[in-house]
Design a protein around this nucleic acid. Structure first.
Lengths: 150, 150
DNA sequence: GAATTTTAGGTTGTGCACAATATAAAATGT
DNA sequence: ACATTTTATATTGTGCACAACCTAAAATTC
């Protein structure tokens, strides 16, 4: 009996990548009911996390450039530009050009966007409960997956 | 100095979920150049994996119902119906109603779709090389992530 | 200082992803 | 048998995700 490795590797059940793909969709599904109350999608929530954190390390009174958000979230402008326009039309952020570099678009939190942080504080804890997995394991897993992000 | 845990948990860098989300997108980006040659996207490739595997465990001469693919890939019909129509218009699959249950749509491989499997055999190996991570670690990681898929 | 290159962002087009809704066939209850 | 419910799939609408391309401003080169 010959054992065809290439055949085994084509089986869905043996694929690490599919598990990551499926888990990623499951995670955003877990976030959805929590974020609905804040009027955010999961990618929008990630953008707000970046802005909330940038807010604290001041010195960027005028906001952060889109490029900064692109790098933090590893997303293209083709994804972020329309997403940021939606956040702007929802009143959570402002978009304005930098004076010193007219190419650069600076994103800043509106008062509403800043206030939303308080309501978001309970999100990570609630999600952790739903995952129902020891926090220490998650931390260890995160380290390993980060290695794959290279 | 008081330490605000809710503030720490809102930091992007501390979030397990973001790593999964970013890794999932990175993985599909790694697949893209490999699958371009086959004329498949990553989700289409996953559907073909299901069909290729179902082909072997015969008894489904007429094909597998969409519901079967939905369950295997954990995707909704709203995602799969248009995707399957694209695969059909690309000549890789056929879609036909079951005689015994007119609601059920049976998906079967065309000769071209079946032949494509031979060219797909090299994909998992090539991807593994690009990930540049010990296979044993990946297997162990997969087990843990599967636990989270519940 | 004019020409070239790089950089920052925007636009367009294709393809997921999923909630909400619709439709019709099959199964079930009475 | 007929009404009700469940099941299998399709449709519509919104929002990512990214490749390919475009524009204009800034930096660099000559």
């Amino acid at each position: 009996m010959s054992f065809d490795f290439s055949d085994e590797m084509l089986k869905l059940d043996n694929q690490f990548c599919f598990v990551v793909y499926a888990l990623s969709r499951k995670i955003t599904a877990l976030y959805r009911p929590l974020l609905d109350g804040l009027g955010l999608t999961y990618p929008q929530y990630l953008v707000m996390l970046v802005l909330w954190q940038a807010e604290q390390s001041k010195g960027n009174e005028k906001g952060v450039p889109i490029k900064f958000i692109c790098e933090k979230l590893m997303l293209e402008t083709g994804t972020l530009t329309p997403l940021l326009k939606r956040l702007e039309s929802n009143g959570l952020i402002q978009r304005q050009r930098a004076q010193n570099d007219e190419r650069s678009m600076l994103i800043s939190l509106s008062p509403e966007g800043l206030q939303l942080k308080d309501r978001a504080r309970e999100v990570p804890g609630k999600l952790l409960c739903q995952m129902d997995y020891p926090l220490q394991n998650l931390v260890a897993l995160k380290q390993q997956l980060q290695g794959l992000l290279g």
